[in-house]
Computed example of a mutant assay.
Amino acid sequence: MTVKENIDLSTLPTLKESYDLTKEQVESYQEKGHILLRNVATQDEIDIFEPIISNRVKELNYHDKPVEERDTYGKAFIQIGRLWEQSEAIARFVLAKRFAKIAAELMGVDGVRIYHDQALYKEPHGGHTPWHQDQIYWPLDTDKTITMWIPLVPISEEVGSMTFASESHKAGYISKVVISDESHRTLEQYVKGKGLQTVTYGAMAAGDATFHAGWTLHNAPGNPTDTMRKVMTVIYYADGTRVAEPDSNARRGDLQAWLPGLKAGDLAQTPINPLLYKKGE
Rank of each mutant, 00 (worst) to 15 (best):
Q86A: 05
P124I: 08
K32E: 14
H128Q: 09
W131D: 13
P246Q: 09
S248M: 10
N219C: 14
E17L: 06
T142Y: 12
E85M: 09
S180P: 15
G33L: 05
T145D: 00
K75H: 14
Y137W: 13
A171I: 02
D47E: 11
G74W: 11
R242D: 14
I52W: 09
W84T: 04
S18L: 10
V159P: 14
Y121K: 04
G127D: 13
F164A: 07
R229F: 15
E105T: 03
L120W: 13
Y121L: 04
A89N: 08
T198P: 08
Y29K: 00
I150E: 06
I179F: 13
E105S: 02
N61F: 02
L255D: 00
V67S: 04
E281T: 07
I114F: 06
L15W: 01
G127S: 06
I78N: 12
P51W: 03
K176C: 12
G160Q: 09
R70S: 10
G261P: 01
L259C: 09
S166F: 04
H132P: 00
R98G: 02
Q256G: 11
D71S: 05
Q197C: 06
P51V: 03
H169P: 14
E182Y: 08
W258M: 12
S168Q: 12
H218I: 00
V159E: 15
I272A: 07
G172F: 02
D141Q: 04
P139M: 06
F211S: 00
V26N: 04
Y62S: 08
K170N: 05
E158K: 09
A209H: 11
R98H: 11
K230L: 10
K122I: 15
T14I: 04
I52L: 10
G207Q: 02
V231I: 15
T225D: 13
E5H: 04
I272E: 11
N61P: 10
V177I: 15
L276Q: 14
E281C: 06
A119P: 10
V109H: 10
D47F: 03
I150S: 05
M162I: 01
L152C: 06
D181T: 09
A119K: 04
K278G: 11
D47G: 02
I150M: 14
Y277E: 15
I78H: 11
P260V: 00
N39P: 10
A103W: 06
K122V: 15
V199Y: 07
T216R: 03
K58Y: 15
